[in-house]
């Protein structure tokens, strides 16, 4: 250690370069670090309060229906309103557009600046591959969307259980929800995460990516709406991109496509829905892998 300067108040040392001989993780440690960093960024952690507002506001919006239903159920537990019914867990999976907005904001925020500000060469100079990057980024969006989708479901379930006359009976009678709800939310979260990150990977500006994603939702649902306007069941309902995970959700909860959907009653509708879901998610994975094949250029 060399003293480089001193004053009456103290002394400044040039400690020089020091070696590191502590533990080192490998590739998975890098993936985990990138995943956790992306989750923190998505939630606005270690960022200014402005960046914290949106994610937590959207979580509040997503959870609000559950809180309201549980609250009403609690207040009227002794004098139940005749027409009051709790929202079903199936309906809750797709009830809020907050998740769509969240993905449209978050996925571009995790992907676009790193491309626009040319951070990727720094990231890929670490022990990571393009596939690792895709896994960490899409995984982070999935994890946060899943949490935002599942927490309200958990709130609804616990609330209903506590408000019911016999909590254990409620739990026993609704035990299948314990796997149906998380699986359905996972189906939705995986779809949104892959679609969001894939579209974001094609743009360098966040606004462009967000607009493209929301535009896709809007245009596909409008086109689908026009095509199935007659009211009969039609495979044209599959054109609506955002309905694809909800059709799969129906298969999880009901074992068939819900009759209240434009695909309900169509022969082979379930298989078609799964095929379209897999085709879209597969295409998204392919886009992402091609965009980040850094090590093979």
């Amino acid at each position: 250690m060399t003293a480089t300067s001193s004053t009456s108040a103290g002394r400044v040392y040039d400690r020089g370069y020091r070696r590191y001989d502590g533990p080192r993780g490998g590739r998975w440690a890098a993936v985990r670090a990138l995943f956790l960093g992306s989750v923190r960024r998505a939630l606005g952690l270690r960022r200014s309060w402005k960046q914290k507002v949106l994610p937590w506001l959207l979580l509040a919006v997503a959870a609000a229906p559950a809180a309201v239903f549980v609250g009403v159920g609690y207040v009227t537990r002794d004098t139940p309103a005749a027409e009051f019914e709790f929202i079903t867990y199936r309906d809750y999976v797709g009830v809020s557009t907050a998740l769509l907005l969240f993905v449209a904001v978050t996925a571009p925020d995790l992907i676009c600046p790193e491309r626009r500000q040319r951070v990727l060469p720094l990231i890929f100079s670490r022990p990571l591959t393009g596939r690792d990057y895709v896994l960490a980024k899409a995984g982070a969006v999935f994890a946060v969307v899943f949490a935002f989708g599942f927490l309200p479901q958990a709130l609804l379930f616990v609330g209903q259980m506590l408000v019911s006359d016999a909590a254990l009976t409620y739990l026993r009678e609704n035990a299948e929800v314990l796997w149906q709800a998380p699986l359905s939310v996972a189906v939705l979260a995986a779809f949104l995460a892959l679609l969001g990150t894939a579209i974001a990977s094609l743009a360098t500006r966040r606004m462009v990516a967000a607009a493209a994603l929301l535009g896709l939702f809007l245009v596909s649902s409008s086109v689908s709406g026009v095509l199935v306007a007659g009211g009969d069941s039609s495979a044209a309902a599959l054109v609506n991109v955002i309905s694809l995970p909800l059709f799969v959700r129906d298969l999880v909860f009901l074992g068939h496509i819900g009759d209240d959907t434009p695909l309900g009653g169509l022969n082979g509708g379930g298989a078609l829905a799964i095929a379209c879901y897999l085709a879209v998610t597969g295409a998204c994975v392919a886009v992402l892998l091609v965009r980040y094949r850094w090590a093979e250029r």
Binding site: A29, A30, A33, L122, P127
Partner: peptide
């Protein structure tokens, strides 16, 4: 970037 290189 240190974490991405494997440091705890």
């Amino acid at each position: 970037l240190g974490e991405l290189a494997g440091l705890p």
